[in-house]
Nucleic acid binder design. Structure first.
Length: 494
RNA sequence: GUCCCCAUCGUCUAGCGGCCCAGGACUCAGCCCUUUCAAGGCUGCAACGGCAGUUCGAAUCUGCUUGGGGAUACCA
């Protein structure tokens, strides 16, 4: 197996089409692109493949940029930070493709085709119906002039350009991940469309060569068209880059991952859902690559890069299962310092329009609460509901029904005692609060801790489950605590 | 239909002829810790798709088969 030589700095590229929200597959491939570039001291290039005018969506290029940057995979070169091999949008490189298409026609490797889309559709339908193994274009236009062809049925005035695939086309190539791979025999593929735009097949070859790309990472679905690309390289007299075909990410039903079946197919979804980019990166690495360390699967991108080897990339398409990502995200969250965690939460709030983001008091509370919610978070989105009781005015605190249902018959007694303790405390800090309440409720009233602290929790948080009680009480402060204890007490007497 | 790719616990994987009656991680279950919930610790459930062959010996090699996926576009 020939793999890209490690001593040569790679020039790799990710080439998404701007057809809406960036796809998670783009990040997945970019990750391996970047790993290879970093490993070899090379460059990572972003090229926008906008040759399908019907599908191109306004604004998605910007999203591709911001999402890659969020993940720490910002391109070294791209349309917004050009280097020396631009332009980086295929729509700005149009003359190039026509030039090479014409060259191929002159050399006899390609030909014009005037067949109408209707004729081609009929041809395919007939081939399918006859169950023949003979499929593909029938070369109706090969060797004909425009006038000759015009006399035949199914004529369309604007021609496309097709490759003339020879009988002895090479059906084997070396993949960086899979080694020797056999491929299906290609059809006389259209390389230049009637609207003058190239198809992917021509564009990728011309661009990769002209932009000096030495290693290309793409999805497995491209394996079958690789011989077309190799043929073009051969005809044009160019050296192809090393090509790595990544296994395809799958939906739970094992089909190719799609936005329709899986919300996580949208790269944006992870940011919206409160995942940390480093956790997502780690997760994507694990999806196609064995863990770097024998004792843990939590690994940094640098560690991944350091051990990167194409031969270790897996060949089976992984099912995109969020359970492990959730665990990883929690693991990364737990590694954050208090300040960093608070910062991430507030930043997340800013991005999602959470009201607390703009409130200085809320920011202060987040900073105080960071240590007590850290190990309870799966995503950043969990923070707001978890500390909501700290941000709500005392009078507006709601009581969950299931929380009220846990109150024991002697709750009033407990609340009275708790109020007395908290009112008399010199030092309103968590350990003093705990000591005071324990003395009064557990020792004094002879209650089990669970029974003793339950009503206090319900009073202060309105919920059955909450962050640690005494720390929460400290953050709330004496006045709020007394007000809330009093409120629940009053409610019980009513 | 045709062609191509792939195949170890539910999921991600280790394994590249003996160290494997298959190891780790996530999930799940139980226990411990414990003021709730988590986190943490411990224990457990759980896999080499099938059939031939090669070999003293096969999860590992070969063939067939089955299953899954992908490609068969003037989409990428």
């Amino acid at each position: 197996m020939t793999e890209p030589t490690q001593t040569v700095p790679a020039r790799t590229r990710v080439a998404p089409s701007p057809t809406g929200d960036p796809h998670v597959g783009t990040a997945y491939q970019a990750l391996f692109d970047v790993a290879w570039a970093r490993k070899t001291g090379g460059r990572f290039v972003l090229r926008i493949e906008d040759t399908d005018r019907a599908r191109t969506v306004e604004g998605s290029e910007q999203l591709i940029y911001s999402d890659l940057a969020w993940l720490g995979l910002a391109p070294d070169e791209g349309p917004q930070n050009p280097g020396e091999c631009g332009p980086y949008r295929q729509s700005e490189r149009l003359p190039l493709y026509r030039q090479y298409a014409e060259q191929l026609i002159e050399q006899g490797h390609a030909y014009y085709c005037w067949c109408s889309p209707e004729r081609l559709a009929q041809l395919r339908a007939d081939q399918a119906a006859s169950k023949t193994s003979q499929t593909g274009y029938d070369r109706c236009c090969l060797g004909l002039t425009r006038d000759e062809r015009a006399k035949l049925p199914g004529f369309s005035p604007d021609p496309v350009v097709r490759m003339l695939v020879p009988d002895d086309v090479d059906l084997e190539f070396t993949d960086a991940i899979r080694g020797q791979v056999h491929t299906p025999r290609p059809d006389d593929q259209v390389i230049l469309k009637a609207d003058g735009f190239p198809t992917y097949h021509l564009a990728v070859v011309v661009d990769d060569h002209l932009m000096g790309i030495t290693a290309a990472v793409r999805g497995e679905e491209w394996i079958s068209s690789t011989p077309k690309h190799l043929l073009l390289y051969k005809w044009l007299g160019w050296t192809p880059p090393a090509i790595a075909h990544m296994p395809l990410l799958r939906n739970t039903d094992k089909s190719k991952i799609s936005k329709r079946k899986n919300p996580a197919a949208r790269l944006e979804w992870f940011r919206e859902a409160g995942y940390l980019p480093e956790a997502l990166l780690n997760f994507l690495e694990l999806l196609a690559y064995p863990p770097v360390h024998p004792d843990t699967e939590v690994q940094s991108f640098d560690e991944f890069v350091a051990c990167f080897d194409w031969a270790k990339v897996n060949t089976t398409g992984p099912i995109f299962d969020l359970a492990k990502l959730n665990w990883l995200n929690g693991a990364y969250l737990r590694q954050l310092s208090d300040d960093e965690l608070a910062h991430r939460i507030v930043t997340y709030w800013e991005q999602t329009g959470e009201p607390g983001a703009a409130d200085p008091r809320a920011r202060a509370v987040v900073a105080q609460a960071a240590p007590i919610i850290r190990e309870r978070l799966t995503t950043l989105a969990d923070a707001a509901p978890m500390i909501g009781f700290l941000l709500t005015p005392d009078a507006a605190l709601g009581m969950d029904d299931d929380a009220l249902a846990t109150l024991p018959p002697n709750a009033d007694q407990v609340l009275d005692a708790a109020q007395e303790v908290l009112a008399g405390l010199d030092d309103f800090r968590a350990d003093a609060i705990q000591a005071g309440l324990r003395t009064a409720l557990v020792d004094g009233l002879g209650l089990k801790p669970k029974v003793a602290f339950g009503p206090v929790r319900v009073a202060l948080t309105g919920r059955r489950v909450s962050p640690p009680l005494f720390e929460s009480a400290e953050i709330l402060g004496r006045a709020s605590c007394l007000a809330r204890l009093g409120a629940l007490r009053a409610r019980l007497s009513a």
